[in-house]
Amino acid sequence: MPVYNKLVRDRILEIIESDGLVYNARILESTELLKEVKAKMIEEAKEFQATETVNESVEELADVLELIHTALSTLGVTYEELDEVRLQKKVRRGGFEKAIYLVDVKDK
């Protein structure tokens, strides 16, 4: 029997049952949820890194976005507040549109 010990999407238990399987699961406390969202986000980012097609990339990005929404809800922050922080950082430090790849920095 595989052991997962990880956050899963809300309908996964229904899918497991429909396959005639039995599971053990529990509901996380909010402090546990944020920790598990962070772990799941790393997992999904690695899956995004491994994608080879646009469709695969979009699927993995959708998972990351869903996790962002869950994290925001857990933190009590709106998506609009997050986007405002993003825009403020973009003004201060720029975005990534220029595709700059920094190789190294040397003292003068």
Rank of each mutant, 00 (worst) to 15 (best):
E36Y: 03
E56D: 05
A39V: 14
S73H: 08
H69Q: 13
L72K: 09
S57G: 13
A45S: 10
E36G: 00
K35L: 13
G76C: 04
F48C: 04
A50K: 07
S30Y: 10
I42Q: 06
D63G: 13
A62H: 01
V58D: 05
V37D: 13
L65E: 11
I68S: 06
E60P: 00
E52I: 12
Q49A: 13
L75C: 12
E29M: 10
M41Q: 04
E29I: 10
T51D: 05
Q49P: 15
I42S: 05
E60N: 00
E66N: 10
E66M: 12
E29C: 10
E66I: 08
L72I: 12
E44W: 00
S73C: 12
E47T: 00
D63I: 03
T74E: 13
L61P: 03
A62T: 03
V64L: 13
S73G: 15
S30P: 15
M41P: 00
V77K: 13
V64K: 11
Q49T: 15
V77P: 03
A71W: 08
E43T: 01
T31S: 13
L34V: 12
T74C: 12
E44M: 04
N55A: 02
V54R: 15
S57L: 11
A62M: 01
T78D: 06
S57C: 11
A45C: 09
L33A: 06
E44T: 06
V77H: 05
L61T: 05
L67H: 01
L61M: 09
K40W: 02
L65G: 01
V58F: 08
A71P: 06
L33E: 09
L33Q: 11
D63F: 02
I68F: 03
Y79A: 09
M41K: 04
S57P: 10
E66Q: 11
L33I: 09
M41A: 08
E43A: 01
T74W: 01
K35A: 11
A39N: 13
F48D: 09
V58Y: 05
L72A: 09
E47G: 02
E66A: 12
V64S: 06
A39P: 03
E52N: 12
V77T: 11
H69E: 12
D63C: 05
E29R: 10
V64R: 14
A45H: 05
T70E: 14
L72Y: 07
S57R: 10
T70L: 15
L67P: 00
T70F: 07
V77S: 10
E43V: 01
Y79I: 14
K46M: 14
L33H: 00
E56V: 02
E66P: 02
H69I: 08
V64G: 04
L34D: 02
Y79H: 12
E60L: 05
L33Y: 10
K38D: 15
G76P: 00
K40E: 04
K40S: 05
E47Q: 07
T31W: 13
D63A: 07
T78Y: 00
A39L: 15
Y79M: 12
A71C: 03
D63E: 02
V37Q: 06
A50G: 07
T78K: 02
L65F: 13
A39M: 15
I68Y: 01
V54S: 13
S30G: 07
E44V: 04
E29Q: 14
E59Y: 05
K38L: 14
A39E: 14
V64T: 08
L65R: 04
S30I: 12
I42M: 08
A50D: 09
